[in-house]
Write a protein that binds this DNA or RNA. Structure first.
Lengths: 239, 239
DNA sequence: AAAACTTAGCGTAAAAAATACGCTAAGTTT
DNA sequence: AAACTTAGCGTATTTTTTACGCTAAGTTTT
């Protein structure tokens, strides 16, 4: 990797959907072998940018290294620049030790991305943590996640983001559960189906779901090409 | 001012509404007294950030210095980080000369802000330029403006941003003209009125507009406090 | 094997919001 | 005085959203 720019970093809020809950991927901060720094604080994946890289590329690289996945949906949603954001002091100390740089102020560009947990292949030591009950994270990472969630809530209403979080084959019910988890409100199943079914880019499969202890539902897949074609006529996706 | 951080800058896309058109505030680049650099290229207001400043504060300061205004609506909408964005070479040369720094890569955080042209007090040598017919600007500033306009179009549908662009006292027709200018489509006057009039935070005044050569319309003002109170009940402003 | 239970999946009726368009009044310019 | 422009209110129609009834298909319990 080229030399690092110690003033600008990229942080990624990686969302996933599992067991009916929206989750975030967190990394356990490497322990610093020193006095009271033993705590297991968690952090978002991220890194300082290298001098010659576009930020989007930085973020994509960070994600590929971490998840082994390419073609991940990702969106830049905010910048965090408070000069005092690298606190408390022990967190800053940790950063200086692990990076080997005398950083003291870093402006970070934050991305959120959406991945299918089942199909990812996470290598590093990471934790999928439910977003609604996060512990205290390093630096201002709690705040970054809150802002990411606000952006996701806003954008999932008008763009077909849910298909990035669902498996390739999914049921209408799973789709509804996902919306309910993200928006934090119950939806009427009958009306939800009525709104979803006419969408031409939702392709019904002949298969049905397996291993559920009730009437199995039909599986669907999302046809991206059809969606792109359709969105020019009407103006896109809307819930 | 504290010492500058030569890696990060702030640029402001300042929108105003005048003569039925949406305009952007541009600055004429100081000429470099040298060979073929004589051209009068235009640029967005902006500057490198100082080491100890939050970016929002940087942007607010930039705006106050330029317009003499405080309490301006402003919103961070994007980051531009292409390593090659400081091109063509003569533009970069100009930046190095005027800043006195050997910058070669700058990540810029972009804000758009909305001001009432009539009530501002612009001091520097600036130009209000219609957004729909911009010349070629310095660096990637054309692209930044396009992205700003996209953000504004999106956000003006769900937030009461129009009142930041209109004078303190305005008519329904002016409001409609503004929406038409920003959204780029004609709206039906009867239906527009029907939608706007019931909004409780729009206070009718006893005054009417003056100096128009047709039936004068009633003036209104926007009551921000009432809006804040009302938005908690229903969920905000929507066009 | 029957009964009880859960979820899938289709349908109808009422309420609310968006759209299309008619019309008069108040002022201006010709 | 006639012609014209914009303000400002109204009504009818269509579309979208919301609320809720119901049967069928499968699973689990008795």
């Amino acid at each position: 990797m080229a030399n690092l720019n110690p003033h600008v970093s990229v942080d990624c809020v990686i969302f996933g959907f599992q067991a009916g809950k929206l989750k975030v991927l967190l990394i356990e901060r490497e322990k610093v072998l020193w006095g009271r720094l033993g705590g297991h604080k968690l952090k978002l994946p991220g890194s300082l940018i290298s001098e010659s890289e576009d930020l989007d590329i930085s973020a994509i690289r960070t994600l590929r290294e971490l998840t082994g996945l390419d073609n991940i949906y990702m969106k830049q949603f905010g910048v965090f620049s408070n000069p005092a954001r690298l606190s408390p002091p022990e967190d800053l100390e940790w950063l200086q030790k692990t990076s080997g740089l005398m950083v003291d102020r870093v402006v970070t560009i934050a991305y959120y991305s959406l991945i299918k947990i089942g199909e990812s292949n996470i290598t590093e030591k990471t934790i999928w943590h439910p977003v609604d009950e996060l512990p205290e994270l390093i630096f201002d990472h709690n705040r970054i996640i809150i802002k990411a969630l606000e952006a996701l809530r806003r954008e999932i209403r008008t763009e077909p983001l849910c298909f990035e979080l669902l498996p390739k084959k999914f049921t209408i019910r799973q789709m509804q559960d996902l919306y309910e988890a993200i928006l934090g409100e119950k939806l009427d199943n009958r009306n939800f189906r009525k709104k979803i079914r006419p969408m031409e880019f939702l392709i019904p499969l002949t298969e049905k779901e397996m291993e559920v202890n009730h009437k199995p539902a039909r599986l669907f897949r999302f046809d991206k090409k059809l969606y792109e074609k359709h969105r020019k006529v009407v103006s896109g996706f809307d819930l």
